[in-house]
């Protein structure tokens, strides 16, 4: 008989030691995904390490250079409503506010969401658009991985066995940049069929900088520097948008599932991109 235990450490060191002590241990964050999988019989962890009591994982830290660090145990609700994002960093609060529904946003955490890397999840694309860095801790120390490199494959990340997400560092966005997250879902609160996360900076009538990431359309968020470049110097006219959108759609590798067919997802990507640009027009005028 396996020892089935719940461990509730108060420090990160103790959490890592507990993960190490019992091979097959799983971290328990909000439980919104893990417990649902346990209920469905999809995973049967022999030991759980609850991260709820580790205070250092919960806060945010404002950095001198305008960056913000968010702890892994930040609830979606806190990221959506209580984090002082500036400029294009707001892509993250837009994404967080569209995850599931208010009750699930009280439970689910940043670390749990990105460690699971559901292809329909909202944070991954937003973090790639924000050019964020994932902060990882393990028994042998800490390491940092760019969000782009962190998401590796379907439900798979750069985390090694025994490692934990400690948090995320969101760098300062360009002054005056606009962040936006456009999500297409069957109903409010469902996982994304497809999504577009972006940071755009305008200079007069043309785009000076852009970073676009597509969610829900492959094993990892899709970011192509080439697609970003196609928008730079343009006025986000429909021609430029459809060119960039098509390039992204061609590179996407979406699934066929209950939410939508792969073809539909590919078709919708350019339109979501155009919609995202229309949605930020008022913010641009205000800027």
């Amino acid at each position: 008989m396996m020892t089935q235990t719940m461990i509730a450490p108060e420090t990160l060191e103790d959490a890592l030691a507990a993960m190490h002590a019992e091979p097959g241990s799983m971290a328990l964050a909000g439980g919104a995904t893990l417990v649902a999988m346990m209920n469905a019989g999809l995973v049967e962890p022999n030991s759980l390490v609850a991260l709820r009591h580790v205070d250092t994982l919960r806060g945010t830290r404002q950095l001198d250079d305008g960056g913000i660090e968010l702890g892994a145990m930040r609830r979606h609700r806190e990221t959506a409503l209580e984090t002082p994002f500036k400029d294009g960093q707001t892509v993250l609060s837009y994404a967080a506010s569209q995850i599931a529904n208010p009750t699930v946003r009280n439970m689910g955490t940043l670390g749990g969401s990105i460690a699971f890397n559901d292809p329909g999840a909202d944070y991954p694309a937003a973090l790639v658009a924000a050019n964020a860095t994932i902060l990882i801790v393990g028994a042998t120390g800490t390491r940092e991985v760019s969000a782009e490199a962190f998401f590796v494959d379907w439900y798979t990340t750069a985390l090694e066995a025994g490692e934990l997400v400690a948090g995320v560092r969101v760098p300062a966005a360009l002054v005056g940049s606009i962040g936006h997250y456009e999500k297409l879902a069957r109903i409010a609160g469902d996982f994304a069929v497809a999504s577009v996360a972006l940071q755009v900076t305008w200079s007069g009538d043309s785009i000076a900088a852009a970073r676009i990431a597509i969610g829900g359309s492959g094993p990892t968020p899709l970011h192509l520097a080439e697609a970003d470049d196609m928008l730079i110097g343009t006025g986000a006219d429909s021609d430029a948008l459809s060119k960039a959108g098509l390039l992204l759609a061609q590179a996407a590798d979406p699934v066929d599932d209950v939410r939508a067919s792969a073809d539909y997802r590919r078709k919708v990507i350019p339109r979501l991109l155009a919609k995202a640009m229309r949605e930020i027009a008022p913010a641009r005028e205000a800027a």
Binding site: M6, L28, G30, G31, A32, V35, A36, N39, L48, P102, T103, V104, N106, M107
Partner: peptide
């Protein structure tokens, strides 16, 4: 408010 079915 939380989901009791997702809380251990």
């Amino acid at each position: 408010p939380v989901r009791a079915c997702l809380t251990l």
